[in-house]
Design a protein around this nucleic acid. Structure first.
Length: 825
DNA sequence: ACGCCTCGAGTTCT
DNA sequence: CTCGAGGCGT
């Protein structure tokens, strides 16, 4: 290749420098000094030079902001310094008292001052808005941007360098003649509100999908595999931290860090929004000020961030389970909005539960458009007195789920009443108070509400198509049989068109069935029509069976589930994952679970009479028995341990079993006396009245005789005795050794996202080590394992003094090398 | 009998 | 995540 003439190299360098300066003036300083046309002219000149001499085209060239070749997939990038998330503090602005309103600020400041051993002098804090965008890490080597990565799980992110290069405010080269050998900057990529609106307008005009909020638009744009698309989207960047410096002096306060970054040409938020303040009053004042300004800012924020300004002090404070002790995110309270209830409809759940749902006029709350909100149950609707036509206050509670806070009664639609006078109102509400319907909206069966229960249920059982669909969906669910690809759309179509009546039918479906189903659902324009991929109109001839093959493969692959998951999949009332696991662990086979009478089941840990009877009734019900037999006949083989648990003998002590028969006033002590008289469970049936224990008072003797009088109870007693013997005979010869495992008898709670383990993987490891994973923190919790974005459970652990571990701590515990955890402050 | 704790069930939107 | 309800220890 011909060498590049010196004058060309010089001109290219000159153009690059000019374009970089104009870029910075335009996008970062918002103060252009040249007309756009001049910029475009220089830009095209540089492009032309680069076209003639491609060697000039470096990654740092301003021409490279237009995006390059699409990548098949983002490669992953390991962060040299982990990208942490901050602990959260929440505010409740409904309180007036300063101490109450700013309790989180006061607590944070106290923790900081305690940690620094500084009781009187106020701490200096660098404060800034908490952007609602995507955290990004930028690496500059000798002043040139060489890598940009998303946060990912904090340890490993995605390499999005090509995309970030197209973000106009990100300098491709640092504005200094003596750049550090290495500089890693952390900041946020986001979309300004005006850019978001323009983008959505353009998307809508083109008939493309619009984004729900700027955050989603930014995320969607940044994660484009084709960076040319990213280049067309107006993304912005704000820097807020330095992660690594080599070959330069690291400033000693956060404030100086920011000043340095600004000198290097990195965009920062306007100075007024990032002051250094002192003490609690300074933090509170800043919080109030930004909160008040929130809606007028050019971008979305979801709170503010407080950081101890001195880096030496930051170092002294250190970290608790991967979140810094010297910084905290203070979130604004949930946003509320007003909207109108168009209708109240009922959803029918798997158990037949009718749940009233408010259909709302679409309204934006906290970044998403809300159209539905659950009203939980009839009582709840009455408590809030929500009616059709009402204007209601909607909030996104905690983080996601929309909630109707209350009704604005002044706006309730009314109608005049004839003959109204001083003593009777002249108008009444247009709509009556809500009533749960008397019949199921799906199948018309009557609706029953048990005495003392909050939920109303459709009595139709599996006759009700809604219940059937939900039962099948539950059966196929990820935590149950895990049939891949069988989602709501297919279940709806399969049931509506009569291809599937019960779960066993799934295993008899053929390719021909699916093709027929597809044909019929196309005719009837059922929801399946929407399942087609864009442009599938022509491909429905060419590859009509691909999805069906996948589905059939998914169904076939689900034939050998672990017993616990199979039991859970059956959808027995009161039997969730945990109870299903108890049954599987203790009894070891489907047959033993099916045959166990209620008292045996109630002898197992955490299973009482209510649950035991629900299980026994489920298996006794002929329809259910037939459905299970059909599954077995179709080749479904739940995988059990084969043997009951060795410790079962203790659970099945005859006196214990007797107390679980549902006999009134029979305590364990009295059951023991009774057994001493009879000699064995079997002999109880024939025990003569005069042989009852002498210590028994007359009412008890009467209660016993009355209970035993019914034949089915004598049968239950006999069946229980029989099953007990059978189970004991099947017990394994060797006692189990689980007591020696490192986490035997320990209860752990997982919260947040762990850096490398998934929640399921962590749970599996803990259980393999003999421990138990629970969902909520209490005094009985031995450890809380906290990851990224840990929430209320971490806070609760700290308030109860429960030790908090990070993933490394958990691994140490699993290895049995650690006696205790790192205690939280 | 009471109260704590855990589990089950239902839910929204992208 | 939140509520309601069942299980179990006190």
């Amino acid at each position: 290749m011909a060498p590049i003439p010196d004058d060309v190299t010089a001109r290219a360098a000159q153009l690059t420098a000019l374009l970089e300066r104009y870029n910075h003036e335009y996008y970062v300083l918002d103060a252009p000094t040249v007309p756009d046309a001049e910029y475009d002219r220089l830009f095209r000149e540089l492009q032309a030079l680069e076209a003639a001499w491609p060697a000039l085209r470096t990654p740092a060239s301003p021409t490279q902001r237009v995006g390059g070749t699409p990548v098949p997939v983002f490669e992953s990038v390991r962060h040299a310094v982990p990208m942490l998330s901050l602990n959260n503090a929440f505010s409740d602005l409904t309180q007036d008292d300063f101490a109450v309103r700013h309790a989180e600020i006061i607590q944070f400041d106290e923790r900081v001052r305690r940690g620094l051993g500084r009781s009187d002098s106020p701490v200096r804090y660098a404060v800034e808005p908490k952007f609602d965008g995507l955290a990004i890490s930028l690496v500059y080597e000798h002043g040139v941007l060489t890598q940009a990565a998303t946060r990912g799980d904090g340890l490993t992110g995605e390499n999005v360098t090509e995309n970030v290069r197209t973000v106009r405010t990100v300098p491709l080269r640092l504005a200094t003649s003596q750049p550090p050998a290495l500089l890693e900057v952390r900041g946020e990529v986001l979309m300004l509100r005006r850019d978001f609106e323009a983008l959505n307008a353009a998307q809508a005009a083109r008939g493309d999908k619009v984004f729900a909020n700027p955050r989603n638009a930014a995320a969607g744009s940044l994660r484009q595999l084709d960076s040319r698309i990213t280049a067309q989207r107006r993304l912005s960047f704000f820097a807020y931290a330095i992660a690594r410096v080599e070959g330069a002096t690291w400033p000693d306060t956060h404030q100086y860090e920011m000043q340095w970054l600004e000198q290097l040409g990195l965009p920062l938020v306007v100075p007024a929004l990032r002051p250094v303040v002192e003490g609690v009053e300074g933090l509170a004042e800043y919080y109030e000020r930004v909160h008040a300004q929130r809606s007028t800012l050019p971008y979305d924020i979801d709170g503010v961030v407080y950081k101890v300004d001195s880096l030496a002090d930051q170092a002294r404070l250190g970290f608790v389970s991967r979140a810094p002790r010297w910084a905290i995110a203070h979130k604004f309270p949930a946003e509320e909005a007003l909207t109108v209830v168009d209708a109240i409809e009922e959803q029918v759940g798997r158990t037949g539960a009718l749940t009233p749902v408010a259909r709302l006029r679409p309204v934006a709350v906290g970044g998403v458009t809300v159209t539905n909100a659950t009203l939980h149950n009839e009582d709840e609707v009455h408590r809030k007195d929500v009616r059709v036509g009402d204007t209601v206050i909607v909030r996104r509670a905690g983080d996601v789920i929309p909630e109707v806070v209350g009704v604005v009664l002044e706006r309730r639609p009314m109608q005049p009443v004839a003959g109204g006078d001083l003593f009777s109102p002249s108008e009444v509400p247009l709509h009556p108070p809500y009533r749960i319907p008397a019949t199921c909206p799906v199948c018309g069966s009557h609706v029953v509400r048990e005495e003392g229960e909050a939920v109303a249920r459709c009595s139709g059982g599996l006759v009700c198509s809604a219940q059937r669909k939900q039962a099948i969906l539950h059966f196929a669910g990820r935590r149950a049989m895990d049939i891949e690809g069988l989602g709501e759309r297919y279940v709806d179509a399969l049931v509506d068109l009569g291809f599937v009546h019960s779960v066993a039918d799934l295993y008899h479906l053929t390719l021909a069935d699916f093709v027929a189903m597809k044909a019929r659902s196309d005719e009837t324009a059922s929801p399946l029509a929407e399942a087609e991929v864009p442009g599938a109109a022509s491909s429905s001839r060419t590859a009509p069976t691909r999805w069906a093959e996948n589905l059939l493969a998914g169904i076939a692959a689900s034939k050998t589930p672990p017993l616990a998951r199979f039991l859970f999949a059956l959808g027995i009332r009161h039997v969730g994952e945990s109870t299903a696991k108890t049954l599987a662990d203790w009894l070891g086979s489907l047959e033993r679970v099916r045959q166990a009478p209620a008292p045996i089941l109630a002898a197992l840990p955490d299973i009482g009479l209510v649950v035991a009877e629900a299980i026994a009734e489920f298996f006794a019900e002929p329809n259910n028995a037939a459905a299970i037999d059909a599954l077995l006949a179709a080749g479904v083989r739940p995988q059990g341990e084969g043997l009951p648990a060795a410790a079962l003998a203790e659970q099945l002590e005859p006196a214990r079993l007797l107390t679980r028969m549902g006999i009134p006033r029979l305590t364990e002590l009295r059951a023991g006396q009774l057994l001493a008289q009879a000699g064995s469970l079997e002999a109880l049936v024939t025990l003569a009245p005069e042989q009852l224990p002498v210590a028994w008072p007359e009412p008890l003797r009467l209660a016993w005789r009355e209970w035993l009088a019914q034949p089915e109870r004598r049968a239950l007693l006999a069946a229980t005795a029989h099953q007990r013997s059978a189970l004991l005979a099947a017990l394994p010869a060797m006692p189990d050794v689980s007591a020696n495992l490192p986490l035997a008898g320990r209860t752990l709670v997982l919260t947040g996202t762990l850096p490398t383990l998934t929640r399921e993987a962590a749970q599996a490891l803990i259980e393999a080590a003999g421990g138990k994973v629970s969902g909520s923190v209490s005094r009985k919790t031995d450890y809380v394992v906290a990851g990224e974005a840990a929430g209320s459970k971490l806070a609760k652990a700290e308030s109860l003094g429960v030790p908090v571990l990070d993933e490394a701590g958990l691994q140490a515990l699993l290895a049995g090398t650690m006696a205790g955890g790192e205690a939280a402050s």
